[in-house]
Structure formats: C-alpha cells, structure tokens
Write a protein that binds this DNA or RNA. Structure first.
Length: 551
RNA sequence: GGGCCCAUAGCUCAGCUGGAUAGAGCAACGGAUUUCUAAUCCGUCGGUCGCAGGUUCAAAUCCUGCUGGGCUCGCCA
C-alpha cells in the first residue's frame, strides 16, 4: 500500500513549490483529518502566519487553489481558523482500494526496503528453567516487532541468546545433581543459590532414565558436564515448545558458550586493549566505561580469571556486528533497566556505530482473574509457566492480551477475560469481525452479485455516509500508521489499529446495507468490505494471530 | 540518593511529525432486531490530561522543577 501522507506531502510540495520559500517548504506536512473534516488536513497556513505577518485564513485562501489542483485531490477547502482540508479524489481512492484486492494480505503492508539486516533479540531467558508467564510479554512484543520491521523492508532475524555459561548454569547443574546423584547412590549438596522447583527433580529423573548407567562410569567433572548438557537441552526444548505454542519462533538460538569457546571474548578484549580503554586494578581487568557515559567502570575479567557477563555481552554484540547486522534491537523486561547505560557504553567503547544497539524495555505484567489481581506462584496454586498460560487462554488471546498496552506501561492481563468467548475480548472481536466480512463476501457471491476485483473500476463516489467515510479513512491511513509504529518500535499500535478497523467495520455494517438493489452502491460497499477483510488479515499477519472465515 | 518507566473518564488503557470538540473497552443507564451472523450497533453519563512554571499563534503531546507509584543500582547473569 502507499503511505498516503508521504504521497500527499510530495504532491503538496510540488503544487506549492513556487508559493513557499525554502524555509517554509518543510512545514507543509499533512495529517489525517478528524471526523467531519474531509480526509486530510494541512495546518500549514497557521504555521506561516507569524513569519508572513498575515492572518492564517488569508494564507489558506491563497494556497487553496494550488492544493485543489493536486492529482490526488478531489476537493480542497480553506477553512477557519486556518486549515486546508483535502478530500481525496474518487479515482485515487478507487485505485488504492482496488490495489489492495490484488495483493496477498501477508504482503499488503509491505514496503520496498533497503534489505538491511536487523536482529531482534528477545526472551533470552536463562536456560535454567521453564519460561515464566512474564516472559510472554517479551515474546509477544519481540515477535510482533520483528514482523513489523519486515513490513518496512528490513531483513529481520529473530534471535534467542542462550546464557549457557557462568555461575547460574553451574548452580543449575548442581541443583540437578543434588537430585540425580542419590539415584546412583551418591550425594551432591544443593548449592546456596540453587534451583528448587519441582522441574529440577523431574529433570534429574529424566536424565537418569536416559543415561544413568553411563553417568556412573564418568568422573565427577565429566558427570557434571554431561548433566549440564542434558539439562540445558531438555530445558531449551521446553522453552522452544512453549514459544511455539504461542506462535513464536526464532531463526537463531545463540549460545553464550559458543562465544567463549570460539575466542570471541579474547577477540573483544583485544579490541578493548587496542582502543586503550582498559586498565588493571585489584588483579582484575577493568573497562574505563565512564569515558563513554557509564556511571561506573566495569570489570571485564575477574580476579579469578573468569570473564564477566559484561565482557561476554560485549563479545556478543561485537559478534552481531560482525555477522553483518546494522542494528540489534534487544527486548528486555524492566528488571534489566539498569543494563542499558552500561551496554550503550560498551557499544561506544568498542567503536560500534551510534544506534547499533537499541534496547526496548517492557514494564511488568499483573495478572487478574475476574478483575482481582492474582499472585502467580506455586503457593497460590496459580499457573506460573508460560506454557500453562497459553494453554489456558489460547495462543491468539495470549498474544493479543500481551499487546494491550504500550511496552512502557505496566500491563494488566485478565485471564478470565482472555479466555472468554465474548466481544469484550479484543482477540475474539477481531475474529468475529473477520468472519462477518467473509460472510458478506460469501453471501454476495452466492446471489451472483458482481464482486469488485483488481481490474474492475468501482464508483467510490457513492460512499458518502459518515460510516462509509470513517471506514474508508481506516483503510487509507493503514500504511502511514504501520510505518509510524515500526519507526517508533511500538508493536502494540498494530493491535489498536486492528481493533479500530474492526470497530469501523461493525459500525459500517450495522448502518449500511452492503448487498442491495442499487448495484453500483452495492459494489462500492463491497469494495470496502473486501479491502477491510484484506487489511484485517494483514494486521493479523503482523500480530501473528489467526482469523477464521466463519464462526 | 542516582538512573529509567508511569501518572489522561469510576476501572484498564490508547492518544508519537505540537493543531479544530481529548478517545476506546469495561462498568452504569436508555434505545435499535421478521439480521448481508443483534456473537452487533447507536445514544447518555463520566475528564482542572498528577501539581507548578516555561516555550509557542496553538501543549495531554516539547522543556524545567516538584509530588506519588513501579523497576533498578554485584568482580551475579
């Protein structure tokens, strides 16, 4: 689809070229009108009033003829206090809508792009246990953002960073060993910071069943290594499955251990040394990150010679850069808020391009049942694993509910509302609306009516009611809004666009008969129905939800 | 104490190139159906956009300072 704002702005700047100075020209930007004021609006006259020492209405009157002459404009009005309102021409509108019918909905919002490689890293929970319900928000945001960026023509990879190295992993392994060793007549103490969930003993049992005898013959160190390997792969399998059930998949599962075993830590440390940004103190190697905006210097290599997470994180992003990504967008929960400053300092100290790393932080999720907040824990007997949540409310409902507010805001997720099959459930509302649109199409074809197609000209001048025009605007602004959502990295806006479209569709449907005697009007309305149907499907594609053709 | 996020209708939240009358869902109340699926739609009620300054022709939106809430400040990851 065309980004109409860009299209109109181009025509405006062409039409007003001689009437505006070089300083004034950039101010000529249109926006969608509010209901009752045609389709698009220029507030340019008010912006010019001061410097031109003229009343806005006078300027509006002066510019109006040129605007009215634009190819895409059917009508242009200069109105007080100083706007020029534009109604798109019928042929222009008809072209836009018809072109929507000839495009695969999955490609409808697709812009020709530069094919730059962008990586979206999200979820990336430690492989030391199953995903928690809270991880669902990151999964939804990250996966929708990735698809959203694809509409902009980027070559997007979805990546999960597997933190399979370091102390957390060690505690995880020893926790399993604590349960597993007794099965072999041995003992292993539960570490202080060990993992206690029931899943740990389940893992121990599973590993024992698989290779208990083999383990017995190994030395202690090899034994632990084998347990770690098996524990990790079992947990990752469960994580992968939970995500798949939520409709989330990854192109890459990137191992932290890989970085270390393949010299990336050494390589990035050398990079730091070459850039002269490290020093030694207290037998540790430090990064002078305060030179790059950090609030304190960071240890890269601990006194015991082990790399810190900071060093490995630097290596990880250095590696991303060398894999050819122009940008890495990392989606983290609010508990990682303190990591942004040091991470950005890392990027700077490595000499990576400004803006290479973007971090999206999402705030916490509160879960409710029937309006009452619930604490999800083993103690309360409530679900705690993401997989259980998805099974309880369903994939599409889970995705939609995790997108109900902006990542910057905290989110309330009502489990009862999410699984209810009623219209106050936004996921259900979208499905219902799509089914309704499909039903109208079926009925129309069923009675042998002429249904608009890409090639057939349709007289959209027949679309004159408030409901017609509002639905029309929802369709025309789609690409503008999607582009904005992608640019500002706000996947939730796609859900709001879809909901708004659905609302306009239902208001239109209720008020205006589509199938009727007046064949021209029927066809014009059918064009709206079909375009809406495709657009709703296009939004659903970005959101990763499935819409049924009938319910 | 420092950093980041939030504060908009009774509740949950949208509102992002600063523009005309601040929107939706839920809740409450009242209407519209021999239906192109009423599983819907419409209307009413409801807002000093946390407070105070500032910039601007114009501020929920930008800037500053407060207040309240959340997250976070390790040679863990």
């Amino acid at each position: 689809m065309l980004n109409l704002r860009e299209t109109i702005d181009r025509q405006v700047s062409l039409a007003l070229g001689d009437l505006l100075s070089a300083e004034e020209a950039p101010l000529a930007l249109c926006s969608l009108s509010r209901p009752g004021f045609l389709d698009y609006t220029l507030s340019l006259p008010m912006k010019l009033a001061r410097t031109r020492h003229q009343a806005p209405v006078v300027i509006a009157d002066e510019l109006q003829p040129a605007v009215a002459g634009m190819a895409c404009a059917g009508l242009a009005e200069a109105v007080a206090p100083g706007y020029i309102n534009i109604q798109l021409s019928d042929t222009f509108v008809a072209d836009q809508l018809s072109s929507m019918l000839g495009t695969d909905p999955a490609m409808l919002l697709q812009k020709a792009g530069n094919s730059q490689k962008i990586e979206v890293e999200f979820v990336s929970a430690n492989p030391t246990g199953p995903l928690h319900v809270g991880n669902g928000r990151g999964a939804a945001l990250g996966s929708v953002l990735a698809t959203l960026l694809e509409t902009q023509g980027y070559d997007v990879d979805r990546e999960y960073y597997v933190n399979d190295y370091g102390s957390k992993m060690k505690f995880f392994t020893e926790s399993i060993a604590h349960y597993l060793f007794p099965m072999m007549g041995l003992e292993h103490a539960m570490p202080e910071e060990g993992y206690h969930g029931a899943y740990v003993s389940d893992l121990a049992q599973a590993i024992f069943d698989r290779k208990g005898s083999e383990l017995r013959s190994l030395l202690e160190e090899q034994r632990l290594a084998a347990i770690e390997e098996d524990g990790k792969s079992l947990v990752l399998a469960s994580i992968r499955q939970a995500l798949e059930e939520m409709g989330v998949s990854f192109d890459t599962w990137f191992s932290e251990r890989y970085l270390i075993e393949n010299g990336w830590n050494d390589r990035v440390l050398q990079q730091f040394r070459d850039r002269g940004v490290v020093y030694e103190k207290d037998d540790a190697v430090w990064l002078r990150s305060t030179d790059f905006g950090d609030d304190k210097d960071r240890v890269l290599v601990r006194r015991d010679g082990e790399p810190t997470y900071t060093l490995t994180d630097a290596a990880y992003h250095f590696n991303k850069f060398h894999r050819g990504y122009v940008k890495s967008i990392d989606v983290f929960g609010a508990d990682h808020i303190g990591h942004i400053l040091p991470m950005q300092a890392l990027m700077k100290s490595l000499g990576l391009p400004d803006g290479f790393l973007e971090v999206i932080i999402y705030q916490i999720v509160h879960f409710l049942r029937g309006g009452q907040r619930v604490v999800l824990s083993k103690q309360t007997g409530e679900i705690i694993e993401l997989a259980d949540l998805v099974r309880e409310v369903g994939k599409d409902q889970a995705r939609v509910f995790f997108l109900l507010s902006s990542a910057d805001s905290e989110l309330e997720f009502d489990l009862e509302v999410a699984k209810r099959n009623s219209l106050d459930n936004p996921a259900y509302y979208l499905k219902y609306t799509y089914a309704r649109l499909c039903s109208v199409e079926r009925q129309s074809r069923g009675i042998g009516a002429v249904v608009p197609s890409v090639a057939s000209p349709v007289d959209v001048s027949r679309l004159t009611t408030a409901e017609d025009r509002e639905l029309l605007k929802c369709l025309l602004k789609a690409q503008d809004e999607v582009d904005d959502a992608a640019r500002t990295r706000q996947p939730h806006r796609i859900l709001y666009l879809a909901s708004e479209l659905a609302k306009s569709v239902n208001a239109f449907y209720q008020k205006e008969k589509v199938i009727q005697e007046d064949a021209d009007l029927a066809q014009a309305r059918m064009l709206l129905v079909l375009a809406s149907q495709r657009l709703l499907q296009a939004y659903a594609h970005v959101l990763g939800v499935t819409l049924p053709e009938s319910m």
